[in-house]
């Protein structure tokens, strides 16, 4: 099943309450928040209402909050780029 990955890029501060309501309905509370919604005409209409504020992509699977956090986590440990002995030789 296809999903829209929707990210709020621009804040709705100072915009009409109608548009803030659409963001609330989409579940976007603050900037850079990401939500997934199924590809339906209803959701497309909601995106159309606030398209200037969003970043939208079509993806195959929806990620949970925990999975999104896991994607942001850096690799554990460290990588040795070169050893001091090799430089001195």
């Amino acid at each position: 099943m296809a999903y829209f990955r929707i990210t709020l890029m621009r804040s709705a501060i100072g915009l009409p309450a109608q548009r803030k309501g659409v963001l609330a309905a989409l579940g976007l509370r603050k900037r850079m928040a990401t939500v997934y919604h199924p590809v339906t005409p209803d959701v497309a209409g909601q995106i159309m209402a606030v398209k200037e504020l969003l970043d939208v992509a079509e993806v195959e699977t929806a990620l949970t909050k925990a999975q999104m956090k896991e994607q942001r986590r850096p690799e554990r440990g460290y990588v040795v780029e070169r050893r001091a002995g090799a430089v001195l030789e």
Binding site: A2, F4, V39, T40, P41, D42, A44, G45, I47, M48, A49, K51, E52, L54, D55, V56, A57, E58
Partner: peptide
Amino acid sequence: ERLRRVDDIISTLDMALAKQGLSTKKL
């Protein structure tokens, strides 16, 4: 850049809905 960003969103919506044979009036 902002205008192009909106154009991209429109084409994304259009392609995603067209795959399922759907569309919406606003679009």
